[in-house]
């Protein structure tokens, strides 16, 4: 496992407190079925990682186990965030550590407005929240109220602003949901974001807009990215520093962005 040679934004932004998600020999699954058979991954601030794999390889399981979705079971290994045991935390505590998950299928929550979710999401983190980097950023966008930030991000992402006052994901198209996920990411500004099939439902223009916003986050606040995807399509816009190929619950190959092209050419059967 070769670490990425040049973590972009750490150098560019000179972040003195990089964040680190460390997945070590993670075994996990659902009751009665093991899906992940020992996964190792390290994602740091400013890095863009891609996990590629065919259907059923365990990509979404990985995403949900990292976020702590009920119903998934950890069978072995560890996951730490900035050295702390992530697996011992509730999902909201993981989010407070700085982890974010954009799920493949965002859940509909009737009657709960997107804006209200963002207001509560930021309020629950409180001011400061032990986040040194956050304290420095406070003069910028972060100093504005959540609703205003959501509005600004909606405009940036081509997400209809009227949808900010509508129920979360209810009656939204697949593409609108992914724009909404990206909007939430941009407002919340997590340290590490897991993006599960962020491109699904998006047309090529939408994909570009969303990928650009994520990459801007890498530069803006040193966002670390773990992009999970079946196809290389997303990675043409969201170019990774490092690619991990996941097949049957194991990382079978790792490399630079060129690995994505190779997988695209040869398919997963070669692994």
């Amino acid at each position: 496992m070769n670490a990425p040679s040049a973590p972009r934004s750490n150098e560019r932004r000179g972040l003195d407190v990089p964040h680190e998600l460390v997945v070590d020999a993670l075994r996990a699954g659902v009751p009665g079925r093991e899906v992940l058979f020992g996964v190792d991954l390290v994602v740091r601030s400013g890095e863009v990682h891609a996990v590629m794999g065919p259907n059923g390889s365990g990509k979404s399981t990985l995403a949900h186990v990292l976020m702590g979705k009920p119903g998934y079971q950890v069978l072995g290994g560890t996951v730490t965030f900035d050295g702390e045991d992530l697996l011992a935390m509730a999902p909201w505590e993981r989010a407070h550590m700085g982890l974010f998950l954009a799920p493949q299928y965002p859940t509909e929550v009737p009657g709960v407005r997107l804006t209200d979710v963002l207001v509560e999401a930021l309020a629950s983190r409180g001011a400061g929240d032990g986040d040194a980097a956050g304290a420095e950023r406070v003069e910028g966008l972060q100093a504005r109220p959540a609703a205003e930030r959501a509005w600004i991000e909606a405009v940036r992402l081509g997400f209809e602003t009227r949808l900010l006052d509508r129920a979360l994901n209810v009656d939204l198209s697949g593409g609108e949901r992914k724009r909404s996920e990206t909007l939430q990411l941009a407002v919340i500004q997590p340290h590490i974001a897991v993006l599960d099939e962020l491109d699904s439902g998006l047309d090529i223009d939408g994909l570009r807009v969303v990928a650009r916003r994520v990459l801007t986050g890498v530069d803006e606040w040193g966002l670390g990215v773990l992009a999970i995807t079946h196809y290389r399509r997303l990675l043409s816009a969201l170019v990774p520093d490092m690619v991990h190929v996941l097949v049957d619950g194991r990382v079978v190959a790792e490399g630079g962005p060129e690995l994505a092209e190779e997988v695209d050419r040869t398919g997963y059967a070669a692994y």
Partner: peptide
């Protein structure tokens, strides 16, 4: 629904309050 809101960093009691209020909002 609760998990999804929690994954945004919203504490369970707040998430549940949002969901219940949402339940009545229509």
């Amino acid at each position: 629904q609760r998990y999804y809101l929690e994954s945004r960093g919203i504490e369970p009691s707040v998430a549940e309050r949002l969901i219940v209020l949402g339940f009545f909002s229509d």
